[in-house]
Design a protein around this nucleic acid. Structure first.
Lengths: 209, 209
DNA sequence: AAACTGTACGAACGATCGTATTATTAGTTT
DNA sequence: AAACTAATAATACGATCGTTCGTACAGTTT
């Protein structure tokens, strides 16, 4: 059976996609609050009410923007790591892809989630809650990846503790690079810290670097 | 010779202080952009133009707010550490005072500078530049504190590298605590990471914990 | 007491914010 | 071809933004 497509819905989906791609870029620089409907409309040369109609409220636009950013993040960071088989190699691959994700400015303002999480960390409401959820999801992913390496006897560590430390190195490199106007050397520094930490926890496997 | 005080200037200084104390609190939650002159005036029950006159522009208000936050930060974090004599003990004291500074919510929105630096990290202008300057100043302080411990033979490490790592643990604990709605356990996790890292670098001195 | 200075206020400005209402246009279904 | 639906647009709303202006007043200097 052939699926009949409604041209109107297709068009709506396309502009929605267009809007969200611009939205994540704006938000990564000026924040989810600085992301305004009027500005979005002007930069895309569409009507303000047209943009608004797609989301119904600013908050819904913000939530949709986070969802869009999450997909981009998954493609840029998680997927490359999962192309490597589980174990220490994948832990290392994830670290590499994260640092590259920040350095390459997949979002022009650096890591979208570091930015948004700081912006909404101390506020209440659905945006905060969703960001907290995504963060927890991410931290669990890191922890699980580490756990797999431990199960294979390639690492000896407290998974939660090591996940905290690696993630700390990621975020810190990201912020330092932003403050120092795209100074790339901080990524080498972070890579060094990650490597040393993993070497200290490595249990006699061939190191992946 | 006795210094003659101008009552008008005294009054001006007091309100300026009042405004800035409120300003850092607002900014630590809603950001330096969310910090609006109108809101400041309303919450302090003074006139909008009165607040404005003190700074001349929003950007000047933001810069003054950062300066005020810097003083509070110096009192809460740096001073307690400098009460301890140089060396590993001071490195540890600084870590303790930092985590307490975040946990106690000296600023209601957590670390003022983590928040502001993320907000302005990807923008250009005087606010970004000043935040970068304060950050560099802070990182140098951490590095120097570590260097003193190395000179005394209490640590063996690359000072810049270790400073990066400790600071990463500070900031990460701060952000995690915000996202998890003031969950205090993350500070214990950070403390554990710091302790382990310092133990690994310690060179046969009595450990300060 | 008069002249001056610094602080604070009230009112208004143009711009932009999020949102609501109403109309127009493109595409589907009958 | 008519009826209907979904996406987009045009316009306007009250609220708030940063900023400007003119003024009232407290305090200092002459």
């Amino acid at each position: 059976m052939e699926t009949r497509v409604d041209g109107r819905l297709v068009r709506g989906d396309q502009t929605r996609r267009l809007v969200l791609r611009k939205a994540v870029d704006i938000a990564s620089v000026d924040g989810l609050e600085g992301l305004s409907i009027g500005r979005l409309a002007k930069e895309l040369d569409v009507s303000k009410s047209g943009v608004f109609a797609h989301f119904g409220s600013k908050e819904e636009l913000q939530l949709a923007t986070i969802r869009a950013a999450r997909r981009i993040y998954a493609d840029a960071v998680v997927q490359p790591a999962f192309a490597v088989e589980p174990g220490l190699g994948r832990v290392w691959a994830m670290s590499e892809s994260w640092l590259e994700y920040s350095r390459r400015r997949v979002f022009p303002g650096g890591c979208f989630f570091a930015k948004a999480s700081h912006e909404y960390g101390a506020r209440r409401g659905p945006v905060h809650d969703y960001l907290a959820e995504v963060n927890q999801e991410w931290m669990q992913l890191v922890e699980q990846t580490i756990s797999e390496a431990i199960e294979r006897g390639e690492l000896e560590a407290d998974p939660g503790q090591l996940a905290f430390e690696l993630n700390a190195f990621y975020d810190s490199a990201n912020m330092a690079s932003l403050l120092r106007d795209n100074d790339d050397t901080v990524y080498e520094r972070a890579r060094q810290s990650i490597r040393a930490r993993l070497e200290a926890a490595a249990a006699g496997t061939a190191l992946p670097w």
